[in-house]
Design a binder for these strands. Structure first.
Lengths: 173, 173
DNA sequence: GATAAAGTGTGACCTAAATCACGTCAGTGG
DNA sequence: CCACTGACGTGATTTAGGTCACACTTTATC
């Protein structure tokens, strides 16, 4: 997917470099960009009324990340995005994305494909949350993202799976 | 959105009429179409190993429904779709959808928009499942789909919210 | 290299929601 | 018209997982 960036796509994209713990998107502020991750590991998460964090998505190399609602509807973010490792991204505004699609119609198809794949993954996650218990969801996660899990503390995996740190700890035997 | 169907879109779409209880998609069989609902009410649901059903989506007038994974990846369905009321749909194959996009490039943008909106809704549902309790999810559902809820038995609402029939009953006071 | 901050395991206890088991009522279809 | 099925409410009991509290280890940070 990196070969995706060989032309002068950089007319449309910019390069961003970020440090571990740095925020890229913050709740209640605008969301000007989608990011394509070149290097590093990020997460998007929601902080509820009681102050608990819930991880919606991780993003490592070659993944895309943003607060979709904020970005596409041009609203303030409901999510936060921060770096779990030092990171580098290529980012693009909504306007530039649209212009890129005009300049290169194949890109629209590409984004549609991306979005469709994302949809399928989200639907599966919903069904997983509704039909599987903690252990099953954990095993499924290991199986789906064997490479990701090595870079994540279990606390964060728990927060992604919707279970408590302690419960996850007891699962791992 | 109905005005969407005024040209000779019917070169691409077909008309389907179905009875209450009739299945449109069945687990383990191909998923040749996406359906645009003209009249009636359908649901897609997943049946887990223990035999419990989990509703992924409802679809009433002007909504689209299919098993995304089956349809876009051209695999067998993992979901079922059936009619909760007598229904009429316009349906289209993947091939025809692609040809429609070629003939009318605006359609591709339209589908991308649809998919993006769907994505946002799915992400919110995941966060809701992870951060809200039964009552909060129920209240949110009433607020999001006031028109839908009148046409649905509570048993099905419970199955959509990921809670038991009995728990939902006790919430309603 | 010392101090602080994350990450992890584990016991004790609590609670939201599931499960099981009834009973009632309305709609439908032979 | 009667029998069956689905919708709904409600009590009693169980249980998966959350919460709280503590100890220990590893990793950052000045």
């Amino acid at each position: 997917m990196i070969r995706f960036f060989n032309h002068n796509y950089f007319t449309y994209f910019s390069i961003g470099k970020y440090k571990k713990h740095q925020y890229i998107v913050q709740q209640e502020t605008p969301v000007p960009y989608v990011h394509f991750v070149v290097k590093g590991l990020l997460r998007s998460f929601y902080v509820d009324q009681s102050g608990k964090s819930h991880i919606l998505q991780f993003a490592m190399e070659d993944w895309w990340i943003t607060d979709n609602q904020g970005f596409y509807k041009e609203e303030n973010a409901t999510l936060n995005i921060d770096c779990l490792e030092d990171a580098q991204t290529y980012y693009i505004t909504l306007e530039n994305r649209d212009q890129l699609c005009v300049a290169l119609p194949k890109m629209e198809f590409f984004f549609l494909q991306k979005m469709t794949t994302g949809n399928i993954a989200l639907q599966n996650r919903i069904l997983s949350l509704m039909s599987k218990n903690s252990e099953e969801r954990y095993l499924q996660f290991i199986q789906l993202y064997p490479d990701l899990i090595q870079r994540l503390p279990k606390t964060l995996v728990a927060s992604y799976l919707g279970i408590s740190r302690e419960t996850l700890s007891r699962l791992s035997h």
